[in-house]
Structures are given as structure tokens and as C-alpha cells.
């Protein structure tokens, strides 16, 4: 402060401090730190209370099993072939279900960009399942596709099958429920990604001689790919945590013994909280691994603007 030579007209308050203060708020603002940041406070608090704390609590709990030392619960999980198999069974459900949801959304939302008669009705039919709970969906699947359900009765009436087709209480039942409840979500996301691509892109490609498949393959798909990957991650996370339908329309002691059921049984049937927490942590690590892999792949794609003026 003393370094500032006090000129004849220098103002009385220490000019050095004033300049320093201004510079600090400016520097903070440059890094995005200003009063608007306070808007994030409620959200951050909720996140800490509802996510960070339970997560960390569970994490430390998983390191305190009754026996076997710090990593005992983790070792127990991987030592049990039945528990180990639940990892594979979860992936076997989550990956196909997510791929089907994303894959089916693309052509449908591609078509839905154009106006046609009955578009609103179709949209409603596609999106309504998102409002139904997973339990309701699972119950409905059980009723409809069950051995005595309408589906099998119709097949029987049409003479297409002599004995009921087994679609519930197995892998197929769970996959069906994951597709029915996950599709609307994937569709809505992809639809919005697709409408963000300027229509002039495809028009330009058409005037350059690209037929509909080439327009999709070389213009729309590359611009849509990052959105597809994000959608895949989100539906994957939803389906990886499958629980009610795996119990209700699946085969929870066999082919749909997914990792969340393994954790549930450890914590709430055997009352081994440490084991339950360890199972949940393993589940989290697996999900993260997939998301990191997909995100890494995504970052290698073009992710800038999708049309309009550059």
C-alpha cells in the first residue's frame, strides 16, 4: 500500500486496497464465482444430504463386515459363484434392453419429425408408460403375457400355439418390462436431440445426391451419435438397477437374479448390512465403468453445433 505514491489529488482512502478489492471480485467473476452461484446452494445441500452422505455411509459400512477384515464383504461376493453370476445376469438384461430402447427410438423419432394424421395419438401411446410405475408395468405384463393372459389366449384362439408361450417369470418377462418402461424415456430424449439437427442439413445432402439412407448414414447419424450415447448411458443406468420387475415377472432365484436382488437379499433377508453395502458398491463401480467407457467413446465424436449458422 505504501508503494502507491500519494499524488497531490490522490483520494484520501487507501487506493491500493480499493483497486485490490475490485480486482478480486473481477477475478472471481472471470472464474464464474459471483452471487448467481448462490442459486446452486439448495441443490448442493440436497445432494449432500440425500446422496453424498448415504453413499459415503454405505461405503464405510461395506468395509466393516462381521468377519473377514476390511475387504471381507467384497471377497465374500466374488467367492460365491451364485453372487458372481448376478453381475453377468444384470449385464445380460441391461445391455440388450438399453440397445433395444435406443435402437427402436431412432427410426420412430426420425419418422415422427414429419406431420401425419394421428401423430398426437401415437405420441401419447408411446409416452404414457413413462407415467406408470415399474410395479404397475410389471403387474400388467404378468397379467397380459402370463400363461392365462390375453396374449396367450389370443394365440390359442388363433390356433398359433397349442400350449401357452412362457413369457413371464423368466428373462423375457423382465426384458419386456424394461423395454416398456424405458422406451418412452429414450424416445423423448432422442426426439429432442433429433429436432436439434437443422432440417437444411438433410436438404443439402439431398441436393448433393444422397438418398435417404446416405442422408441418415452420413449426416443425421453422425450428428445424432453423441445424443444416442448419452441416452444409452441414462437408460443403461435405469435398467442396470432393475429390481421390481426382476422380482415380479422374472425368475429372481435363477436367470434374473440380478445384482440388486443379491444386495437386497443380503441386507434385508440375511440382515448382513455390510454385505448389502458391498454389493451396492460393486454395482456402482460396474455402472461407472460402463458410463466412463461410453463417455470416452463419445468424446472422440463430433459434439459441436448440429446445424444452422456456424
Amino acid at each position: 500500500m505504501t508503494a502507491v505514491a500519494a499524488g497531490p489529488q490522490a483520494p484520501a482512502p487507501d487506493p491500493g486496497t480499493v483497486r485490490g478489492r475490485v480486482a478480486l471480485t473481477h477475478r472471481l467473476a472471470e472464474r464464474g464465482v459471483d452471487r448467481v452461484l448462490l442459486l446452486a446452494v439448495p441443490g448442493v445441500l440436497a445432494l449432500v444430504a440425500l446422496f453424498c452422505y448415504p453413499f459415503l455411509y454405505g461405503l464405510q459400512l461395506s468395509f466393516q463386515p462381521a468377519h473377514g477384515g476390511v475387504l471381507g464383504a467384497y471377497r465374500a461376493f466374488f467367492a460365491d459363484p451364485f453372487a458372481r453370476k448376478s453381475i453377468w445376469q444384470t449385464f445380460a438384461l441391461a445391455i440388450p434392453a438399453s440397445l433395444i430402447n435406443v435402437g427402436a427410438s431412432v427410426p420412430i423419432s426420425y419418422r415422427m419429425r414429419r406431420e401425419f394424421r394421428g401423430k398426437r395419438l401415437l405420441l401419447a401411446v408411446l409416452v404414457v408408460p413413462i407415467t406408470l410405475g415399474t410395479v404397475l408395468t410389471a403387474e400388467g405384463i404378468g397379467e397380459f403375457y402370463g400363461p392365462a393372459g390375453w396374449f396367450n389366449r389370443t394365440l390359442h384362439l388363433l390356433g398359433l400355439s397349442s400350449s401357452p408361450v412362457k413369457l413371464t417369470m423368466n428373462y423375457t418377462g423382465v426384458l419386456l418390462s424394461l423395454v416398456i418402461s424405458g422406451f418412452p424415456f429414450a424416445y423423448l430424449l432422442i426426439h429432442s436431440y433429433l429436432s436439434g439437427i437443422h432440417p437444411s442439413m438433410e436438404k443439402a445432402a439431398a441436393t448433393l445426391g444422397a438418398d435417404w439412407w446416405q442422408r441418415f448414414r452420413y449426416v443425421t447419424l453422425p450428428l445424432l451419435a453423441p445424443g444416442l450415447m448419452t441416452t444409452f448411458c441414462l437408460t443403461f443406468v435405469m435398467t442396470f438397477a432393475v429390481f421390481p420387475s426382476a422380482l415380479m415377472v422374472g425368475d429372481p432365484d435363477g436367470s434374473t437374479h440380478v445384482i440388486s436382488i443379491e444386495a437386497y437379499e443380503a441386507a434385508l433377508q440375511r440382515f448382513d448390512y455390510a454385505q448389502g453395502c458391498a454389493d451396492a458398491m460393486i454395482m456402482t463401480a460396474l455402472m461407472l465403468a460402463v458410463i466412463v467407457a461410453v463417455t470416452a467413446l463419445r468424446s472422440r465424436l463430433y459434439t459441436g453445433t448440429t446445424g444452422g449458422k456456424g
Binding site: S200, T207, G209, Y302
Partner: peptide, 14 residues
């Protein structure tokens, strides 16, 4: 097979 130049150019950004 006509060439067209669009008002917003419609270049492929990727």
C-alpha cells in the same frame, strides 16, 4: 443433380 447454396449455408458441421 442440381447444386444448391442455402441461405444459412447448411454446411455439415461434423
Amino acid at each position: 443433380g442440381f447444386g444448391m447454396v442455402f441461405q444459412n449455408y447448411a454446411l455439415f458441421p461434423h
